[in-house]
């Protein structure tokens, strides 16, 4: 059976998102922490938007035996974006601080 990968960094499949929804992990902040989507190297740049599209498509009715999304439309938002914007090497952080002071 073919698999559809939703989050490449953390290797999360679309089916895992559906399974989390079925178990009641319905809001995006919780889905992120339950499945791991968006917590890898790219920090969600590749997968958050796809996840939100899937949630949007599911929110009114379940299709093909998939769960209807229990949350309301207003809860479909991008999870809190955390710094740093890009991964930073520890050496670079320390050196840049020492040069700056």
């Amino acid at each position: 059976m073919s698999k559809t990968i939703l989050c490449h960094c953390e290797d999360v499949e679309v089916e895992e998102l559906y399974s989390a929804l079925k178990q009641g992990y319905g809001d995006i902040e919780t889905l992120k922490r339950y499945t791991g989507i968006g917590t890898g190297k790219c920090q969600g740049k590749c997968c958050f938007i796809q996840t939100l599209r899937l949630l949007d498509a599911l929110k009114s009715e379940g299709e093909n035996g998939r769960p209807a999304f229990a949350g309301d439309v207003t809860s479909i938002h991008v999870p809190t974006l955390r710094p740093p914007v890009l991964p930073l090497r520890i050496d670079d952080i320390v050196d840049c601080d020492e040069e700056g002071t």
Partner: peptide
């Protein structure tokens, strides 16, 4: 040796 590692997220 962690100097080479990258920090990806803080909260």
């Amino acid at each position: 040796k962690l100097g080479k590692a990258r920090i990806i997220r803080q909260w």
